Each structure stands twice: as structure tokens, then as C-alpha cells.
Simulated scan of single mutants.
Amino acid sequence: MRDQDNAELLAKAHDGDQEAWREIVRRHLRLVWAVARSHRLSPEDAADVHQAVWLILAENLTRIRRPDRLSAWLTTTARRESLAVLRLRGREEPTDLWEPADTSPNPEDLALGNDTDSRLWRAYTTLTDRCRKILHLIAFAPELSFRQMAEAVGIPPNSLGPTRGRCLEVLRRRMTTETVG
């Protein structure tokens, strides 16, 4: 098996040859692990990424167009999975299990929150349709990629970041103007 190229190994693995699958994993095991760990994931998260990459490969054995570039494909897949884990972990908030959280807001916080919410929505309604659509997608569909968001809005993907930044800046200015005025 060690003398066979990736195309042969992928074909054999697709046909159920366990030795071919083991050889693919043996050849690329350290690469996939290194990519996951290079994203500073915990050992547990890196192991999850590692496992996910091999599962994705198993699901796509016949879709690999360039078997000679399998290492690059695995690297890209591991990077994407690592970034997905980082995005998910970034949304987690640690809680103190020993001290019950007081979730009831005090009256002052309620009043300030309602005022801020009202000012935000009034400023939001003054934005252009494009800006409202971009900010809506960011807030309510964060799982979309830049490309998917750009397609939904109808702009080139490389314009989405700067356009989003301008929209947020206009929103900030309008909220500030309303506070001062």
C-alpha cells in the first residue's frame, strides 16, 4: 500500500478496502492534527476537528478531483473545521456553577436598555435597504459565509466587509446624533 499513489488509495478506500483507508490516514494523520492544533484549539477540540476531517473525507472519497493534492484538500478542510469550532466556542459563555445568577434586571437597567433599543431601531430604520439587509443577515444568520451573505445582498464578496463597516459606522453616528440631539 505504501507504494500506491493517492488516487489508487482513494479508489480502493471507496470500494471498502480498510488497508487503503489506513494508509491514507497514516500518511496524513500528523498534517491534520497539526492544522487543528495550529489554531490553538484545546486537545479535545483538536480531536473533534481531526475526527470531523476524516469523516468529511470518507463522505467525499469520490469527489476529490485532484488526488495528487489530497494534502492540500485535507489542510483546507481541517482549517475550515478549526475555524468553525472557534466560532462556536467564541459564542459560549462560562458560568459560575457555584453562585446562582441573578437574571432579573433592576429598573434602571430596564429603562436604559429600552431607551437604547428604541434609539437603535429608530436609527436602523433610517439606513438604506442594503445596509438593513446586511445587518439583518449578520444578526440573524451568522452561520452564512461571506460569499453567501454577499450573494443574498447582491454585491461582490470582497465588498461585503467594507460595506458592512460603513453601514455600522452610519448606524453608530445616527445613534450618537439622536443621543446628543
Rank of each mutant, 00 (worst) to 15 (best):
22 R>Y: 05
77 T>Y: 00
101 A>F: 05
29 L>H: 13
18 Q>K: 10
113 G>M: 10
100 P>V: 11
30 R>P: 06
38 S>V: 07
135 L>I: 14
83 L>P: 06
11 A>P: 03
42 S>P: 14
179 T>I: 11
48 D>P: 15
84 A>R: 13
48 D>Y: 06
81 E>C: 09
65 R>M: 07
89 R>W: 02
162 P>Q: 07
86 L>V: 00
111 A>T: 13
130 R>Q: 14
120 L>G: 07
17 D>V: 00
107 P>D: 12
154 G>W: 07
132 R>K: 07
40 R>I: 04
13 A>E: 01
40 R>Y: 10
114 N>M: 11
160 L>D: 01
79 R>P: 03
132 R>T: 05
133 K>E: 12
138 I>N: 04
172 R>A: 11
16 G>Q: 06
81 E>L: 13
42 S>G: 14
56 I>A: 15
11 A>L: 12
141 A>I: 01
83 L>H: 02
10 L>Y: 01
173 R>V: 11
62 T>C: 00
103 T>E: 15
107 P>H: 04
165 G>E: 14
159 S>P: 09
37 R>S: 13
41 L>T: 10
28 H>L: 02
168 L>A: 11
141 A>Q: 08
61 L>R: 03
14 H>Q: 12
175 M>K: 02
75 T>S: 14
135 L>W: 10
14 H>F: 14
71 S>W: 04
98 W>L: 14
60 N>L: 00
3 D>V: 13
27 R>W: 08
52 A>C: 04
96 D>C: 01
73 W>R: 02
99 E>W: 08
15 D>C: 13
76 T>R: 07
179 T>H: 12
101 A>S: 10
146 F>H: 09
170 V>A: 12
176 T>M: 08
55 L>R: 04
162 P>R: 05
65 R>F: 04
48 D>M: 08
72 A>R: 07
115 D>M: 09
159 S>K: 06
17 D>S: 04
163 T>D: 00
18 Q>R: 14
131 C>Q: 03
91 R>F: 07
116 T>N: 11
143 E>M: 03
173 R>C: 05
149 M>S: 01
73 W>D: 04
136 H>F: 13
113 G>P: 15
124 Y>M: 15
177 T>F: 09
135 L>R: 08
56 I>N: 09
34 A>H: 13
68 D>H: 13
39 H>Y: 15
